[in-house]
Design a protein around this nucleic acid. Structure first.
Lengths: 194, 194
DNA sequence: TCGTACGGAGTGAGTGCTCACTCCGTCAAT
DNA sequence: ATTGACGGAGTGAGCACTCACTCCGTACGA
């Protein structure tokens, strides 16, 4: 059991708990979830804050979604590309939204700065690279659009947040609805590609 | 100093602190902010949880934004109505987003249920009535739209969340951008009402 | 091949501190 | 004089974190 492995294991056990209870989660609960003694946590991490930081870093890590976005073939039509992107991003937002949202407060972010903490605004940073990936996805059709791909990417991401904020499924727009609305307000030649 | 007044005063003092620190805020901090003794808090509220609940109830209270939305004249053109709505809703989301987001975690929501706690999902409830108000705002133009007003209202609200999730102002879409994109993908006769 | 000394990893049992909450003396209003 | 609101000074509980120990895999001398 390498130290790196141990840390990863603790973070894996802590993530769902942090998502649910935020910084109010106790180290003993994390230890129990991980099936180890509480003291072991403090062998792997300097203190509880470092555990929470590691959770944030893991949660906002955009590698997975970026890989998915990069794998979308650019020769597909724009609506298809965006629908594919919507699914990948939705999953990413769900993973990350809970953890980060839960920790935003909770007194977690104290002003002391023990070196390798995730830099402040790392969530925004993470969102930014995702937005850039979406921008790249839109870029090929720039000529056909009335807005800059950057703005469209922002709007698109905002739209995807809808799901996280409404519980009722009945009147909730589908991914197709989102893409449809986004595109036919954006394409310079209206309504041609429905 | 009526008891109701006292409670309101405590909540008013606590709200910005809760928005910033979440449930990690201490009762002594709240007392200091309110300029009262800590014990006084517990004469007005049963326990700290009740204080936090009162903050949530206050923060998600949609009365203000509903009044603003209701005051938008329905005989104005749809784009104007939506732009006006965007401003009111944006302010509401900002007020409410921080407090609720900060509290979502922090172990605040325990399973005990001391009667007049804000019912679970009161944030969703609050969002729902706002969405209904927006729906009413869109309703008169239903015939000219390709989607149901309900869905459009959801999408519109989702778009407005964009601002809360990105810090960078440069590539950020304006309210006008949002309305523009939303409408010209929604109006049945494309691009006529720009 | 065995016996044993070594050290790193793990943890149960504290330890001190912070925080929600209470007690009781004080004091203002009637 | 009596009542009741108020708040300073506790108090007990629960938490992050530490200490002192055990366990076990390994190295090495005979």
């Amino acid at each position: 059991m390498t130290p790196e492995h141990r840390r990863a294991m603790i973070v894996a056990a802590a993530l769902p708990l942090v998502a649910e209870y935020g910084a109010a989660i106790t180290t003993s609960q994390i230890a129990r979830a991980a099936g180890i003694g509480e003291a072991t946590i403090f062998r792997a991490f300097k203190d509880k804050d470092e555990v929470l930081d590691a959770c944030v870093t893991e949660a906002v890590n955009p590698d997975h979604v970026l890989r998915e976005l990069a794998s979308i073939p650019l020769d597909q039509p724009l609506p298809v590309r965006l629908s594919d992107a919507a699914e990948a991003i939705r999953a990413h937002l769900e993973r990350m939204g809970t953890v980060v949202g839960s920790l935003h407060a909770s007194g977690h972010r104290r002003d002391r700065s023990p070196a390798d903490r995730p830099p402040p605004g790392s969530r925004e940073q993470s969102m930014r690279v995702v937005r850039e990936a979406v921008t790249d996805l839109i870029e090929p059709d720039r000529a056909a659009l009335r807005l800059e791909p950057e703005k469209l990417a922002s709007i698109f991401l905002g739209m995807l947040f809808t799901r996280l904020h409404f519980a009722s499924a009945d009147t909730e727009p589908t991914s197709e609805d989102l893409v449809d609305v986004l595109l036919h307000g954006s394409l310079d030649d209206s309504r041609s590609a429905t």
